[in-house]
Design a protein around this nucleic acid. Structure first.
Length: 220
DNA sequence: GCGACAG
DNA sequence: ATCTTGTCGC
């Protein structure tokens, strides 16, 4: 698939925050409810600043792999909480550009709306591609949430500044929840439903698990 | 002031 | 993210 021009790349934290503030208004919080091709994205770090980005596209109906791609590069920004997306975005976009199919949903490792400025990685990549996107985080980062009931499928809201920005979702009985938030062109109900549909067996949704594996063990 | 802080 | 063994459970 093709991804349009990123934007002037920030060299300081202030510039990066300005990019987030400029793009935040483009996020749409409603969209399709079902997706035929779902892509998981993840990045693996080696050495100092070397990264391998992986994208794995699954057939949503069977969870079989439809296509996958990797791209090697360098972390494009220092790690600063809240500016995490700037580290991984260029490598992820390179990997997406190597796909011959266009996914219907991007599932990111990290947050979307649940972010100090309401514009985490999932929102950012959704706006750049124009595709529906959502974030699945493994640890609570922003906002407050009560633990959901222990049964798979239960969830509680994540609130930040009085607003609901995501949900803590239990994808496995008795296992700590994942933290789901909207990226772009998706409702919170749909994102929650997708997180559960895509994680029938493990805590982490299958597209992200596959992408994590591919980034750690790229071919040749 | 210090630690914590998506990955 | 990464540095790191064994162990319990499905």
């Amino acid at each position: 698939m093709r991804v349009d021009q990123l934007h002037p790349w920030p060299s300081t934290a202030a510039e990066a925050e300005a990019v987030q503030d400029a793009l935040r208004g483009r996020v749409e919080l409603t969209g399709p409810e079902e997706f035929a091709l779902v892509a998981g994205l993840d990045v693996h770090y080696h050495g100092d600043d070397e990264v391998t980005a992986a994208v794995v596209v699954l057939d949503a109906a069977t969870l079989d792999v439809a296509e996958q791609a990797v791209a090697h590069g360098r972390a494009a920004f220092p790690y600063v909480p809240g500016l995490f997306a700037f580290r991984e975005l260029p490598a992820l976009v390179s990997a997406l550009e190597r796909l011959t199919v266009t996914p219907d949903l991007l599932v990111c490792d990290g947050y979307g709306l649940a972010h100090p400025r309401g514009f985490g990685l999932a929102c950012h990549i959704g706006v750049l591609t124009g595709l529906p996107s959502m974030g699945v985080g493994k640890t609570p980062f922003v906002g407050e949430s009560e633990p959901p009931a222990p049964e798979r499928g239960s969830w509680t809201p994540i609130t930040y500044g009085g607003a609901t920005v995501g949900r803590a979702v239990r994808t496995r009985d008795g296992v700590r929840p994942v933290y789901v938030s909207q990226g772009h062109r998706i409702s919170l109900d749909t994102a929650t439903r997708q997180a559960l549909l895509l994680a029938p067996r493990h805590r982490i949704p299958e597209p992200i698990r596959r992408a994590d594996h591919l980034a750690r063990h790229p071919p040749s």
